Simulated assay, not measured.
Amino acid sequence: MLPILARVVPGVTLLTLSATPSLAAPAAPDTGSTAWILTSSALVLFMTLPGLALFYGGLVHARNVLSVLMQCFAICCIVSVLWAVCGYSLVFDGDGAWLGGLGKAFLAHLDPVRPATVLPETVFALYQMTFAVITPALIIGAFPERVAFPFVALFSALWMLVVYVPVAHWIWGGGWLAALGTMDFAGGIVVHTTAGVSALLLALMVGRRRGFPRRFSRRTAPA
């Protein structure tokens, strides 16, 4: 229940504030809202580590549990770095219809209080990063024990930049879908739809595990 609240309540709050042009940015951030967003960021991150890591680890052979745990941990590290380098800026900087700019690359030029909110922009960037982390991690459940670790790392990095960043800008960053009135409070489109469709296509390309679901093949390659 807490993870759900951590995604829905802050999302509704942030989108409501962003949709109110007349709301001037306060001189100082609101401490209560900032504390709640920080708590929500931790709860969303917990859904990836250890949440998804342990859940997907239970779907594989015992010898491959550590591999799945490492995949989730690596995705967390890779996406966090990419988000700081250019991801946040491409999503939330500028008002382009298809993609943002690089004015806030490497988290430079962040505002003390993000416009139209009561939050420090650093906290806002952290909160959004947790969603960027969990989205590619959701996909690894589509190919357990059937791909190598380098593929997971490379695919997750490219997918985050090519798929997640543009879609997040379209809706949460004020892109063309936001201009059409699209609202996504808890990531139903940005997170779950993009990850679900990508996981389905990737599972079809990689193929099923040998003998699954009747039995596990001993010849299944480690993930």
Rank of each mutant, 00 (worst) to 15 (best):
P3M: 08
A6Y: 06
A6W: 03
R7K: 10
P10S: 06
L14W: 14
L14T: 04
P21K: 09
A28K: 03
P29W: 01
P29V: 03
S33H: 04
T34Q: 07
A35K: 02
W36V: 02
I37N: 01
S41F: 07
S41L: 05
V44Q: 02
L45R: 03
F46S: 05
L49Y: 03
G51A: 14
A53Y: 04
L54Y: 12
Y56N: 11
L59C: 13
H61A: 15
R63K: 15
R63V: 12
V65N: 01
L66E: 02
L69G: 14
M70I: 13
F73Y: 15
I75Y: 11
I75W: 12
C76Q: 04
S80L: 03
A84I: 06
A84F: 10
Y88F: 15
S89H: 06
L90H: 10
G94I: 06
L102T: 15
A105V: 05
L107N: 09
H109A: 15
L110W: 01
D111R: 05
R114Y: 12
R114P: 00
A116F: 13
A116C: 03
L119M: 13
A125T: 10
A125H: 10
T135E: 03
I140P: 05
A142P: 09
P144N: 11
E145L: 12
A148Q: 12
F151G: 05
L154I: 15
F155K: 01
S156L: 05
L161Q: 08
V162H: 00
V162I: 15
V163R: 03
Y164K: 02
Y164L: 01
V165C: 04
H169S: 01
G173V: 07
A179R: 15
A179T: 01
A179E: 09
G181N: 04
T182Q: 11
T182H: 07
M183S: 06
D184C: 08
G187Y: 11
G187A: 05
I189H: 06
I189F: 14
V190I: 14
H192M: 11
T194H: 07
T194N: 02
T194V: 12
A195N: 05
A203G: 13
A203F: 08
A203R: 12
V206M: 08
R209D: 03
G211I: 14
G211V: 13
P213V: 10
P213A: 12
R218D: 14
A221W: 04
A221S: 13
P222T: 13
A223T: 12
